[in-house]
């Protein structure tokens, strides 16, 4: 039976006097891959940071599997998170970093080693397992963060632009894992700028602009909603985020230079 994995109601987040998220509401069900789309600075990362407990909302209700954020240990135990900017404990090696994460998450040694073996092989990270994270490329750091997010088999995956920096093979594997996570009854919420990815992967998308959800539904739902947009999700996206207006003129002006 479908259950609510994420419930966000009238969320407000401020940075000083600037309101980054304003009365934002959406839900993600189990078995669902939910894509959060929006232009730069729309409030996607801020929303995800509230879900993982690193940002404090000013107002609103947020529940993960019907547990309020105030019960942070329970909430964080359900979640696997990949940040947009991968800042890890650079002086540790991936082995040491994952060992630390596994300790804090209280994971059983036998099961974790089997899973880590499979994940490092899948993401081709084995050869870097004893190299300090500081010396890894951005893509490999991203892989370490992805393995750390997946290793405890979380019920909810929160991925902030997870495909940036990944090579084609790892990107494909991650997409498969995202689908598998939904199929086995978990939930995934991720932000992306790549419309094709959202179109292929997501059951539902929420388009966020200036801190508000301006449109939500399946890609088909959105097409119906925006009557003139017969093309891709990108066209719908530009339309609902009001970025289409005047775009042709700007491009023309640039070409004329």
């Amino acid at each position: 039976m479908e259950q609510l994995a994420v419930q966000v109601e009238r969320l407000v987040v401020n940075y000083g006097t600037f309101t980054a998220v304003e009365n934002l509401s959406f839900q993600v069900r189990t078995g669902e891959v939910y894509g959060l789309l929006g232009p730069n600075g729309a409030g996607k990362t801020t929303t995800l940071k509230v879900l993982i407990g690193t940002l404090q909302p000013k107002a609103g209700k947020v529940e993960i599997f019907n547990t309020p954020l105030s019960d942070e240990v329970t909430v964080k135990s359900h979640i696997g998170y990949v940040p947009e900017e991968v800042v890890l404990l650079d002086s540790l090696t991936p082995r040491e970093f994952l060992e630390f994460i596994a300790s804090v998450r209280n994971i059983d040694r036998k099961s974790i080693n089997l899973r880590i073996g499979k994940l490092t092989l899948a993401f081709q990270l084995t050869q870097y397992f004893d190299t300090p994270i500081a010396a890894l490329s951005m893509g490999n750091k991203q892989k370490v963060a992805i393995i750390a997010a997946l290793m405890h088999e979380p019920q909810l995956l929160i991925l902030d632009e997870p495909l940036i920096g990944l090579d084609a093979r790892s990107s494909r594997i991650l997409k498969e894992l995202i689908n598998f996570q939904a199929k086995k009854g978990g939930a995934v919420i991720f932000s992306t700028h790549i419309m094709e990815v959202a179109e292929k992967l997501c059951n539902r998308v929420g388009i966020i602009n200036k801190g508000k959800i301006v449109s939500e539904g399946t890609v088909e739902d959105l097409r119906k909603l925006v009557k003139s947009a017969e093309g891709s999700l990108e066209d719908i996206f530009l339309k609902v985020t009001e970025q289409e207006a005047g775009m042709q003129e700007i491009v023309k002006a640039l070409e004329e230079e």
Partner: peptide, 19 residues
């Protein structure tokens, strides 16, 4: 690629010493 998870508090100490 074997890791040795410990009790959480011990894991934190180990991490601090490594850093």
């Amino acid at each position: 690629t074997l890791i040795k998870p410990q009790r959480a508090w011990l894991g934190i100490i180990h991490k601090d010493l490594r850093i």
